[in-house]
Design a protein around this nucleic acid. Structure first.
Length: 814
RNA sequence: GCGCGGAUGGUGGAAUGGUAGACACGAGAGACUUAAAAUCUCUUGGGCGGAUAGCCCGUGCGGGUUCAAGUCCCGCUCUGCGCACCA
């Protein structure tokens, strides 16, 4: 009898799979149904992955493996998110050039992923920093530019002083840089944007129907942040200027007692007079100096100054003061609001502090009379001819009236801003633009792509709002593609997120040098059937959706949404219950565990068994040995089968078949429903069962045990691909278990002739009955009330009711 | 503050409204062994009990619906995550 030696068999089968192209997919083969499984592109930011990452990759591996075994042409590719800030920062940290640092780090990444036995098609590996890849990223930039979705604009932008670059809104988390965690400030700069807001509405509308983890859908909806309201025009008293405000509550218009502008609002300068100008200018200058985060952290104590001017409320002609305050944000709506202190908390706080009038225009419900601010619905008061109308109806009527008077209109606003994509950093795809004195920003013609990133010795950011590329004069100096005039190249590079917004399409045609992909292949393979990750719930997924929608409009992809099922999994915590991180030194290297003799399969089984996918759970160092014990039991069980004599039939084989067929069904359904932990526990249960059953029914090479052993190996295979391949061969098969081998089950085998009926009295368990499946319900009820322990609780009373749930329980109500 | 989750043994967790605690870890006992490791078998929510007879209690707290509630409804507490002066 052979002993289970993971180290030996895992190396052997990994080599076999590679040599035989077991996971190499012919993308042109349409003879089988397709299945496209993917985990988010790994970023090369350090020397490798930890067990938390490993788990993330494994989800798509298992889904894809199961489908491959079930007869699909199943594709699980791998590649590297090589461009961008994280890689460049890593390079600075290790004191090497980005390319060099990246390539060196990649060695360990690959070693880890290969040792973990993922069923990747390594022949189609890609990297976003490969010129043959970023050539097409630049091509996509050109297409966006051509369609007016890439543009340059000067505006205040998030700026990270540490990383010396601007950041997209999605990359600022709680006022801090997503990479270095330091506070960001705003800087007025001319930058490139992608017009993602163009798709805000349709992405929002499509979100509800996505088969995605609910939390991610909610986060995306909140991020898009659609608000339907109105823009209302206020005349400025004594001036021809018009002040437009945005509000979601036009029904409260009669309650507006002042107007507030953001400090950055363009009209501020023209509204001041001799007495107020000094104070207002000081206030504006102060606000500009402070970062947004400082404003936020200052305990939300309202500050502001009066401009000296007044606005006229269009509905009632009231003359109300115009203030400047930093609680109004310049980037949202019109950067100006009408303040209704009676029905908005922030306005109320401001009014209280500066003694501004408060007028109630919505009647508070009886129960809420006490509270100061009421922001709910109710009949209008103090609102002229709209009095008595419920606020929800008044909303529309007031807007209709404004539209008629041409002093306002309905308006939808979004929190989402356009995607800022220029980075003042070296390590990225150069933005393929040439600045011509005559023609302005001119895209580099498609046939001249890629614009290669030049090799430079000093790539580090110098500050001053340009990347290191600005110093490469013979690269910067070029001629205009239109007129040939001396021009300069754009020296900003593309946000790394841009590079990773379309990789799932390139995977389907990675070597195409004529076009980014062949639409015929994409039509067959898209969308991605299963996508998962533990990060990037907003930015990456929104960007990828945006681009896919754009490609859809160009007829380049068959579906506006890139990802079918998107599963957002939780991270595994370190044994101490905190987040695993390099800096804390509490990460666990999968190589270490595998090298200690447990092998990849035990690690893989534990990673799935530890908790459901969406729950954070601390790493238990005793977990892998536990999984190893289970696999060892499988191994020993199969060894008995290998050594058993053939042809003998066990006489009482029914329970073995019940166990086997139930298991096949359960694991199939669990994998389908992403319940990987219970799939494993049911396999453990079945194996425990087989150990008991083999005492009375010794393992033999009969139909019953053959089905039990083979189906066990097949359903275990996506989780533990090496041991199952080895045992599959040992029991006599010559082909790989990983293609087209999945058990069929038969519901007829899933029940025994005897069923257990639970007997309750008033809902409490009092007895159990073992009866023949064919027993009729009346007999079961009779047996139930006659059983001794039930009699004791019924105590001669006549049962009021007897409820029988067929095949399950009897509840006697007394 | 708003939004979305979560709360079950010593631990990770399981449970279409129908036997709460599957499975695993840990712990304890036994078998094998000169011994240890490995392996195999059994026990393991708390309490009463000689009992693997039976009973009582038990899924964060307080109510409710139901023949029956961890599960559904209402009101709380704590906690994780996301967003956060978005008018």
């Amino acid at each position: 009898m052979k002993r289970y030696n993971p180290t030996e068999i895992e190396a052997k089968w990994q080599k076999y799979w590679e040599d035989n192209g077991t996971y190499t997919v012919n993308l042109a083969d349409n003879s089988k149904p397709k299945y496209y499984g993917l985990s988010m592109l790994p970023g090369i930011t350090g020397a490798g992955i930890h067990t938390g990452h490993g788990r993330t990759f494994q989800f798509s591996d298992i889904k894809t493996r199961a489908k491959r075994q079930q007869g699909c042409n199943a594709y699980n590719p791998i590649g590297w998110d090589s461009f961008g800030l994280p890689v460049e920062n890593y390079a600075i940290k290790v004191g090497k050039k980005p390319r060099e640092a990246h390539d060196e780090a990649l060695v360990n990444f690959k070693r880890q992923l290969k040792r973990l036995g993922y069923g990747y098609d390594w022949t189609k590996e890609l990297s976003t920093a490969d010129p043959q890849y970023y050539r097409w990223t630049q091509w996509i930039f050109n297409k966006l530019f051509e369609h007016g979705l890439a543009y340059q604009k000067e505006s205040p932008q998030w700026w990270c002083e540490t990383d010396q670059t601007v950041l997209a809104n999605e990359q600022v988390e709680g006022g801090k840089c997503w990479r270095c965690g330091n506070q960001v400030t705003k800087k007025n700069l001319k930058q490139w944007f992608f017009k993602i807001t163009e798709y805000a509405d349709e992405m929002l509308a499509a979100t509800d129907d996505l088969n995605w983890t609910e939390m991610v859908k909610t986060m995306q909806k909140n991020w898009i942040g659609r608000s339907v309201g109105a823009e209302v025009e206020f005349k400025i008293d004594g001036s021809d200027d018009i002040l437009t405000v945005f509000t979601t509550r036009p029904d409260t218009l009669f309650g507006a007692t002042f107007v507030v502008l953001a400090p950055e609002h363009e009209l501020v300068k023209s509204l001041v007079n001799n007495e107020t100008s000094e104070a207002v200018e000081a206030y504006v200058a102060d606000a500009a100096r402070k970062s947004e985060i400082e404003r936020m952290n200052e305990s939300r104590e309202k500050t502001g100054v009066f401009t000296g001017s007044y606005a006229i409320n269009p509905v009632n002609g009231n003359r109300i003061p115009i203030w400047v305050a930093d609680y109004v944000l310049s980037g949202y709506g019109t950067g100006a609001i009408m303040a209704v202190p009676a029905h908005d908390e922030r306005d109320f706080a401001f009014a209280e502090k500066f003694n501004l009038p408060i007028i109630e225009v919505i009647e508070k419900p009886e129960t809420n009379r006490e509270i100061g601010v009421y922001d709910g619905e109710g009949p209008l008061v103090n609102s002229g001819r709209f009095d008595g109308i419920d606020s929800s109806d008044a909303r529309e009527q007031i807007v209709a009236w404004l539209e008629q008077e041409k002093t306002g209109h309905q308006k939808t606003s979004y929190k989402m801003r356009d995607w800022l994509i220029s980075r003042q950093r070296y390590w990225g795809a150069p933005i393929p633009i040439i600045h011509c004195p005559t023609h302005g920003a001119v895209p580099v013609p498609d046939d001249q792509l890629p614009v290669l990133l030049p090799d430079v010795d000093d790539f580090k950011p110098k500050g001053g709002a340009t990347s290191a590329l600005a110093g490469v004069t013979d690269w910067v100096n070029t001629t205009c593609p239109i007129c040939g005039e001396a021009s300069k190249r754009e020296t900003d590079t593309l946000d790394g997120y841009a590079c990773s917004s379309w990789y799932f399409l390139r995977y389907l045609d990675p070597f195409n040098d004529k076009q980014p992909w062949n639409p015929d292949i994409i039509n067959h393979w898209m969308p991605v059937d299963f996508y998962n990750g533990a990060d990037h719930a907003v930015a990456h997924l929104l960007y990828a959706r945006f681009w896919t929608r754009f490609f859809y409009k160009l007829g380049l992809v068959p579906n506006p949404e890139p990802f079918g099922r998107m599963m957002y999994n939780a991270y595994i915590l370190a044994p101490d219950g905190t987040k695993m991180s390099k800096s804390k030194g509490n990460t666990i290297d999968p190589l270490e565990i595998m090298d200690s003799g447990y092998g990849a399969d035990s690690l893989r089984v534990y990673e799935m068994f530890i908790a459901p996918y969406d729950l954070e759970a601390p790493w238990d160092t005793r977990g892998v040995p536990g999984a190893y014990r289970f696999l060892n039991r499988v191994w020993n069980l199969v060894q008995e089968y290998v050594e058993a004599s053939s042809g003998r039939l066990s006489d009482k084989s029914n329970e073995i078949l019940v166990t086997a067929h139930r298991l096949a069904k359960k694991v199939t359904e669990d994998i389908e429903n992403d319940k990987f932990n219970t799939a494993i526990s049911s396999m453990m249960e079945a194996v425990n069962n087989y150990y008991k059953l083999k005492v009375a029914n010794p393992i033999a090479k009969d139909d019953t045990w053959t089905y039990a052993i083979e189906s066990l190996l097949m359903v275990l295979s996506p989780f533990a691909p090496h041991i199952t391949e080895e045992l599959w061969r040992q029991i006599g098969h010559e082909d790989t278990i990983h293609i087209d081998h999945w058990p069929k089950w038969n519901d007829e085998f899933m029940t025994t002739d005897i069923m257990t009926i639970v007997v309750q009295v008033n809902g409490k368990l009092r007895a159990k009955l073992e009866v023949e499946k064919t027993t009729n319900p009346e007999d079961i009820k009779r047996l139930a009330i006659e059983s001794d322990n039930v009699k004791k609780f019924v105590e001669g009373n006549q049962p009021k009711k007897i409820i029988y749930v067929p095949g399950k329980l009897v509840n006697v109500v007394v």
